[in-house]
């Protein structure tokens, strides 16, 4: 789910950068309002490493080979730190392995980071309203993981459909894209399970690591 350089037209990449910069600014502003803004940095740094590595591990889930995204996990563990963490992870993935691209960094940050923030909001709102219990935490963490990856897949497909160049055979590309979206359904469930299990484990041993509890 990383769009490489040269696939999208210039207006979309520029729009992605503008959006990504404004979201980063909003996240940093929220982090700065905390008592100790530096407190969350070690956790964010370690999860950035996890996010960076996740895209290198390919899982052969038929009919395609997909990689873990973990943006839901970053969302529920980092809250507002998730977006800057994802930008840094994406930057290193693009520079080191050509996974994504520098011109599409903004668009990719919105595709992966936006749903991470949505997952964080979903997780924190519901546990706060109903009061945390192991069952609820696990269920909402599962939901957060599912929502994050499915939103990312849909945003990815939407960006490509909007920015389809004229010389490309649109029918072939659209059917390939549909297959790609469908092949991510097992991954969506897997990510939900991973986020749910991690949240259930952390709720028992270190509940303060979960953002928004």
């Amino acid at each position: 789910m990383h769009i490489p350089d040269g696939i999208l037209p210039l207006p979309i990449t520029l729009g992605g950068y503008v959006l990504a910069v404004s979201v980063t600014w909003a996240c940093l502003h929220r982090i700065n309002q905390r008592e100790d803004p530096r407190e969350g940095i070690p956790k964010a740094a370690l999860l950035t490493a996890a996010f960076f590595l996740a895209s290198l591990i390919h899982i052969p889930l038929p009919p395609a080979s997909v990689h873990l995204v973990l943006n839901g996990l970053l969302g529920i563990l980092l809250g507002p730190f998730a977006f800057p963490a994802i930008i840094i992870g994406l930057f290193f993935q693009a520079v080191m392995f050509g996974h994504g691209g520098l011109t599409t960094l903004g668009v990719n940050a919105i595709i992966l980071g936006g749903p991470a923030l949505a997952a964080a909001a979903l997780f924190s709102v519901h546990t706060r309203v109903n009061g945390p219990s192991p069952g609820k935490v696990t269920a909402f963490a599962f939901l957060a993981g599912v929502v994050a990856v499915s939103f990312s897949v849909l945003l990815f497909a939407a960006c490509l459909l909007i920015g389809m160049p004229a010389h490309i055979d649109a029918v072939v590309e659209r059917s390939a894209l549909t297959l790609l979206v469908l092949s991510h359904i097992p991954l969506i469930v897997l990510e939900g399970l991973i986020v749910g299990l991690v949240a259930a484990f952390l709720f028992r041993v270190r509940p303060h690591l979960l953002e928004g509890l």
Binding site: I3, P4, I7
Partner: peptide, 11 residues
């Protein structure tokens, strides 16, 4: 030469 398949690709 550019190859493109479902949003993935290289040049």
């Amino acid at each position: 030469v550019r190859a493109r398949h479902a949003g993935h690709g290289a040049m």
